[in-house]
Amino acid sequence: MYHALFFVFLRIGAFTIGGGYAMLPLIEREVTRRKWMSRENFLDAFAISQTMPGVFAVNMSILIGYRLRKTAGAIVCTLATIIPSFLIILTIAIFFTQVQDNLYVEKIFKALRPVVVALIAVPSLTAAKAAHINLRTAPIPIVVAMLIWAAGISPIYIVILAIAAGLAQHIFVK
């Protein structure tokens, strides 16, 4: 069982490019095909993963591993999920720190850097759509972005404040 868990999650970690949510269909297919979990339990794990902090794909691995084989299962699944990206990135890091002064690598990254900014700017707009930002809630992301970007405040304080504000409103304002 541990053997099977390890190799399934290794495959999930190795073949999903594009972050945590891209892994979702692959995880669902593997887990339900092997009858490790019902679809309801899978959706339950998905919902809990979203509410927990951290890396989404890791949260899914911990939850599924724990459901199937308790703490040992959670450790096996998490390791299997992170090992492929860990090894690939480590290889690139070792290699890249040696070639980053290479003329051609410099040329490539000169063009890549503004492109990366665009690749992050787009998800901020799609996230705004998904969070149903309207005229009433628009000041929140704007003020948050200004506090971090212009005032240099740590995002951690802002996350704590956002949680506290949500809970306070729930408890005191009915």
Partner: peptide, 15 residues
Amino acid sequence: TYLRPTAVGLIAAAA
């Protein structure tokens, strides 16, 4: 409630 709009601001700040 406020974490979702806050996350939008976090991504915008990174960009």
